[in-house]
């Protein structure tokens, strides 16, 4: 089985997207996001494992940050001043790997080895195995503290990079996030952005039926953060939020998303946290993502 990408055989010049005017950028980002979703479905099909729901919900935000805003490229991968993208919800490694492959960090064909014996593409990302991965996540609630440290380093070193941290919403039940939130606000880390993938589902149930998070925007605001609440599956809205004025504070983007976004029978269903689609369902999913 081989991974197919850009089915129309017309690859986008992904490196050029960041320089496009905002409207055009948002349109191109949509195309990239569709490719990432197709790759995710194929990877999970080949591996017969993975976290499809969260991969598909976070795709638009990841793509918008990586291709539309941040200075992230294979050429600058070892540059001390590069921007940092941290996937705290590490179970969605397939989405991150797809983004990194499309951005040229490693061959797209390597995605076929996802979770295979001795593959560099482990079920959770490893910075020592894959360039572009900044944090070895997997246990939830680790990304934001690391992001806070990164944002402090950015200021201390005078290199002034941006740090973007992607968390799940269920993940926010971990207290470490709120410890880090206090540090970030206290230190006025306006170079730090947390993107909360607010799909309202966690592993076994809805967040509000487990340990409710609402009113979530108020929580971040009361912790001293600038807050933007947007449609997290809309690249235009994401672009706007990522580049908005932060008023000297860290920014929390509450990205309201659909878990499983883009595949009708997966969308907003708790059982698709880590269920693997059947062969027929993979066909259907790829048709919907054509």
């Amino acid at each position: 089985m081989t991974i197919s990408v850009w089915p129309d055989n017309k690859p986008l010049d992904v490196a050029a997207i960041r320089d496009l005017p905002e409207g055009e950028r948002a349109e191109q980002l949509k195309l990239v996001a569709k490719q990432v979703r197709r790759l995710v479905v194929q990877m999970i099909d080949i591996a017969r494992a993975g976290h499809i729901g969260g991969d598909l919900s976070v795709t638009d935000a990841l793509v918008t940050a990586a291709f539309g805003v941040l200075n992230i490229s294979p050429e600058t991968a070892d540059d001390p001043g590069r921007d940092r993208l941290i996937l705290s919800k590490g179970h969605c490694a397939a989405a991150l790997y797809s983004v990194l492959a499309l951005r040229g960090f490693f061959p797209v064909d390597d995605l076929e080895t996802f979770m295979k014996p001795l593959s560099k593409l482990n079920g959770h990302p490893n910075r020592l195995k894959v360039k572009g991965v900044e944090a070895n996540t997997g246990p939830l609630g680790h990304g934001l503290p690391i992001g806070v440290g990164s944002a402090i380093a950015s200021k201390l070193s005078g290199k002034n990079w941006q740090t973007f941290v992607f968390t799940g919403d269920g993940e926010l039940q971990e207290g470490s996030n709120w410890e880090a939130a206090m540090t970030a606000a206290h230190r006025k880390l306006d170079n730090l952005v947390v993107i909360v993938d607010r799909n309202r589902l966690q592993q076994g149930a809805r967040t509000e039926e487990t340990a409710s998070l609402d009113p979530l925007a108020d929580k971040w605001a009361s912790f001293g953060w600038e807050v933007a609440e947007i449609d997290g599956n809309d690249t235009a809205a994401l672009l706007k939020a990522f580049t908005q004025n932060r008023n000297g504070k860290p920014l929390a983007v509450i990205a309201n998303t659909l878990k499983g976004k883009g595949v009708s029978f997966i969308e907003d269903r708790v059982e698709w946290h880590h269920k693997v689609p059947s062969k027929e369902q993979v066909e259907l999913a790829l048709k919907e993502l054509a």
Binding site: A47, A49, G90, H91, M115, K116, N122, G123, H124, N126, N136, T137, G138, P139
Partner: peptide, 9 residues
């Protein structure tokens, strides 16, 4: 037991 999910798990 969580094999390919890796050392974190």
């Amino acid at each position: 037991a969580y094999g390919e999910l890796g050392p974190t798990h």
